[in-house]
Deep mutational scan, measured.
Amino acid sequence: KELVLVLYDYQEKSPREVTVKKGDILTLLNSTNKDWWKVEVDDSQGFIPAAYLKKL
């Protein structure tokens, strides 16, 4: 599985998104959309702007 590093805090703005903190390491589930990547946070899944993430 691929991991990503969160570069900036992000507060979810819709139920399909997730809240993350700078420095979090998350599992990347889908990066086919260049603007929004799907990640797994704890036991939930959701989208975060790709610009907030860096592949490890």
Rank of each mutant, 00 (worst) to 15 (best):
K54L: 11
A51D: 12
V6R: 01
T32L: 09
L3T: 07
V41F: 12
K38D: 03
I48M: 13
Y8C: 15
P15F: 07
L3W: 12
T32P: 04
F47D: 04
Y8R: 14
G23D: 05
K38F: 15
K1W: 10
K54Y: 09
K54T: 11
N33C: 12
Y8G: 06
K13Q: 13
D9I: 03
L3N: 05
D9N: 07
L5R: 06
S44P: 01
A51E: 12
T32C: 14
A50S: 13
K1G: 10
L26W: 04
D9Q: 03
V39H: 01
W36Q: 03
L53Q: 00
D42V: 10
I48F: 02
L7E: 02
E17Q: 12
L56E: 03
K34I: 09
K13I: 08
V41G: 08
K55W: 07
V4N: 00
K55I: 13
V18W: 11
L56V: 10
E17V: 07
E40L: 12
V6G: 00
S14N: 12
D42H: 13
K54M: 12
P15W: 07
D35R: 13
K55F: 08
T19D: 05
K54F: 08
G23S: 03
D43M: 11
E12S: 15
I25R: 04
F47N: 03
L28C: 07
L53N: 00
V39A: 01
L7Y: 02
L28T: 01
N33K: 06
N30T: 07
R16S: 13
L29P: 00
F47Y: 14
P15S: 11
W36P: 00
N33G: 08
Q45C: 13
L5I: 12
P49L: 06
Y10L: 02
T27V: 15
S31P: 05
Y52K: 05
G23N: 05
E2W: 11
D24G: 04
A50I: 05
K21D: 03
D43W: 06
L28Y: 01
A51M: 13
L3K: 12
Q45M: 11
V4C: 10
I48H: 01
W36M: 06
L7Q: 04
E17F: 08
E2H: 11
V39D: 00
W37G: 00
I48C: 14
P49T: 03
S44W: 15
D24L: 08
V4S: 01
V18P: 02
L26K: 01
L3S: 07
I48S: 02
S44I: 15
D43C: 13
L26H: 06
I48D: 03
W36N: 02
K21M: 07
T32W: 09
Y8H: 14
L7S: 02
V39F: 02
V6S: 01
E17P: 09
K22Q: 11
L26I: 12
E2L: 11
T32F: 10
V39Y: 01
K1I: 11
S31I: 05
W36H: 03
L3A: 05
D9M: 03
K13T: 12
V20G: 03
V4A: 07
D35E: 11
A50N: 03
I25Y: 04
K54H: 10
K34Y: 07
N33W: 06
Y10E: 01
K1F: 12
E40R: 10
Y10P: 01
L53T: 04
P49Y: 05
S14D: 10
L29I: 14
